[in-house]
């Protein structure tokens, strides 16, 4: 009897914990929405700040939205250019379970675990080393470093479980490793899209990386060497302003960022569902 009671007690506790996590999510979304919805006007998304982002009462955060999109797209594209070859190398070109493949996987797990503030500090060092100023370019390079391990891990997970026989089928027709790679890429398209979305979500929300490297301005950058505003920093800086209108811009920015991230998450879910359907 005591045995049953103990089990019932812990089971109840477990269910409470599980539900409370969903509860916290709902609470966060509710707080962000209720605070941000009132300030989310057309001006916010269509105008750059008027009279300085920290003190000016008018205008919006278009500069931050555009800046974030630039950096995120740039970093994801650069990231893909590096991570796809890496994933192909460890899954197609290198021998199965080779030393290099295992080391690469371990390293990208470790790089994935490094906090973005470390990437930010490192990005700042290379920026100084190459004589760059805080700019769209420096921000993009730093965020690229941040997303490479995310992309490698996510894509590797998909490529690794593709049945060996698909590769063997191509080899047995006299295909080369590069030809096999092309077939595998085709097979893994939904997985690659999921990885891209994952990296997109992480890149657009990260503040510590761009804090030292992208700078912050009121205008929309027109070239790579100009500094740029970003959404996370728009929230961070404007929230600390004493002026209520500016704070409200921060809440609106928080809501916009949350919506973007949620849309990305749901799209990624859709594609990963597709992925499991396509599995042979």
């Amino acid at each position: 009897m005591k045995r049953k009671l103990e089990e019932q007690f812990f089971k109840l506790l477990m269910i409470l914990c599980t539900l409370s996590i969903s509860g916290v999510l709902i609470m966060i979304l509710w707080t962000i929405t209720s605070k941000g919805a009132g300030s989310l006007t057309w001006d916010i998304v269509s105008k750059i700040p008027e009279g300085g982002f920290y003190i000016g009462k008018g205008g919006g955060i278009l500069n931050a939205i555009i800046g974030s999109i630039y950096i995120t797209i740039g970093a994801t594209v650069f990231g893909l250019l590096i991570s796809i070859p890496v994933v192909l190398y460890i899954n197609v070109y290198a021998k199965k379970n080779s030393w290099l493949a295992t080391t690469t996987r371990l390293t990208s797990d470790i790089l994935f675990g490094l906090p973005s503030i470390v990437y930010g500090a490192f990005g700042f060092t290379i920026m100084i080393y190459f004589g760059l100023k805080t700019s769209l370019l420096a921000g993009t390079i730093t965020v690229t470093l941040l997303v490479i391990p995310i992309l490698v891990r996510a894509m590797d997970e998909v490529f690794r479980v593709v049945p060996e026989d698909i590769g063997n089928a191509v080899y047995s027709l006299g295909g080369t490793r590069w030809e096999t790679s092309k077939i595998l890429i085709r097979q893994c398209v939904p997985g690659i899209i999921t990885a891209i979305l994952l990296s997109f979500g992480r890149a657009i929300g990260d503040a510590a990386c761009v804090l030292f490297t992208a700078g912050y301005t009121d205008s929309i950058p027109t070239s790579l060497d100009q500094p740029t505003a970003t959404l996370p920093l728009a929230i961070f800086f404007q929230l600390s302003s004493p002026i209520e209108e500016v704070q409200n811009r921060a809440y609106a920015a928080a809501l916009i960022l949350t919506i973007i991230v949620l849309v990305i998450s749901f799209t990624a879910k859709y594609f990963s569902k597709k992925l499991s359907k396509n599995k042979i």
Binding site: A169, V170, S172, L173, G174
Partner: peptide, 30 residues
């Protein structure tokens, strides 16, 4: 070129991720 000389039929069929026509044409194409 060795592998081209030998067709392989594995335990379970593994069609390549493309249509029927392209599957057969694939080898000739590469």
């Amino acid at each position: 070129s060795i592998r081209k000389k030998m067709g392989l039929l594995s335990q379970r069929p593994f069609p390549l991720p493309m249509n029927i026509y392209d599957n057969v044409a694939y080898g000739a194409r590469i």
